[in-house]
Nucleic acid binder design. Sequence first.
RNA 1: CGGGGUGUAGCGUAGCCAGGAUUAUCGCGCCUGGUUUGGGACCAGGAGAUCACAAGUUCAAAUCUUGUCACCCCGACCA
Length: 481
Amino acid sequence: MNNKNYIKLIIKSKIAFFSEIKGFIILRTYGYKIWENIKNILNNILIKTKHKNVYFPLLIPKKIFFIDKNHIKNFYKECAIVTHSKFIIKNNKVILDPKSKLEEELIIRPTSESIIWYTYSKIIQSYRNLPILINQWSNIIRLEIRNKIFIRNSEFILQEGHTGHKNKIECINEIIKIKNIYKKFIKNYLCIPFITGFKTNNEKFSGAKFTFTFETIINNYKCLQLATIHYFAKNFSKVYKVKYTNKKGKIKYIWCTSWGISTRLIGAIIMIHSDKNGLILPPKIAPIHIIIIPIIYNNNKNLIYKINKIVYKIKKIFYNKNIIIKYDNNIYKKPGNKFYKYENKGIPLRIIIGKKEIKNNIIEIVRRDNFKKYYYKINNKLYNKILKIFKKIQINLYYKAKKKMKSNTLIINNYKIFKNLFKKKKCGFIIAYYKINKYTELKIKKDTNATIRCLIKKKKIGKCIYTGKITNYIAIFGKSY
RNA sequence: CGGGGUGUAGCGUAGCCAGGAUUAUCGCGCCUGGUUUGGGACCAGGAGAUCACAAGUUCAAAUCUUGUCACCCCGACCA
């Protein structure tokens, strides 16, 4: 899917609309519902693991933001900054009131670590306060030079967890826990395949000891980061002076993590699951699960009455069952028109009711992902039958995407071939043995424009693709979106 | 910031080179009425555009000149 079609699809399926400001979008009801579903699913999982939601302010005072200069070094070049509080009208022109200039500039959060850790330093005193498992659903602004709808918006909504722990074991366990949550969530709910591993020092989140990442391929050759988990060890607590008194009365620094996903996932879903007919949404996050389309002749009132009765029956079966059904009874549109419309919107199932169905006392069910047809009677078994189809769709979407990712992943041990493949845009991921070194990493980037998406430690040793030195690390290379 | 391109209705576009019958073309979408409906219906009617903005040349500018702005693509930058 090229960029033009990607944008067209988003506009046509009414997921989002461009706003007046570059890089800022309007999430429309259909798109926002996808996000709400993502949010609700993940939120419920996080509630079970005893994470609690909070909300911190949108604006961060400059002095707090700059406490950890290392942490924000990637962010201070792309901040939106509030400097004034008033306008005045002068000569019929609206200008900033110079008198209202703020003593200290306020920064619209590009990420919330600074204000959160600053606050933790005031809240946390005892080991009894730990672990602190806090999560925030918020919006942030990063004024990027080049935008791409959902993939790189200037404003996006995200989930950011910020936790504090007594010791290293507890902290690492938290990271493993979140890793498993994200793995299951991205695979089972979004049907997106991925590779996981660690970021290199060049690529990791500033301030982190290590960054664990989830990477996938979109558009056959570009790579996208889906989620990240950062292990800060005591980096943040030392800078922000977040200390607690342990059982023995000794003062200790706490161990920190942060982790997040964002509305970027919507972009990934669109790019990975769409076909030439438009979107395909995994049932678990689809705003509408079933679209019912009637086929009417000659404005036949009797036929319409019969169809309505069947629709009522179906709706009754699914009443209170978390399955959203829409009945498009617009008599001015032809069925074909409706088929195209809802295929484009990616609704997982379509039910057709017409003369044939009434005669045989059945309904026709068509899957969006492979257009397979099912003919079922309307009875109480229908609910379970449809749940089964939904499961099949989820699985099919995942394996289809996984197959595609695999076909765009190559294992290479020759640097010449490696370079050529990236030049010709012939691959997404290239897996190779690699001896970690920040200079060779930059050289490879210069040569190929590809970066190390992640590193994985292996038991077996091999020769580094660039230097030929023995290493037990493999790197997954790719071009970033 | 470099190289290239584009700005005409909600969207996609014709017209621009060679200025004037322009009341700015056509398609999608939208509204009204009627006939339709098993893969994007048809007929009739209707609404919707200071031709990106500004200045200039001219009797006359969507069209020519200059400037400004915005956007897109390829780089650079960037999780």
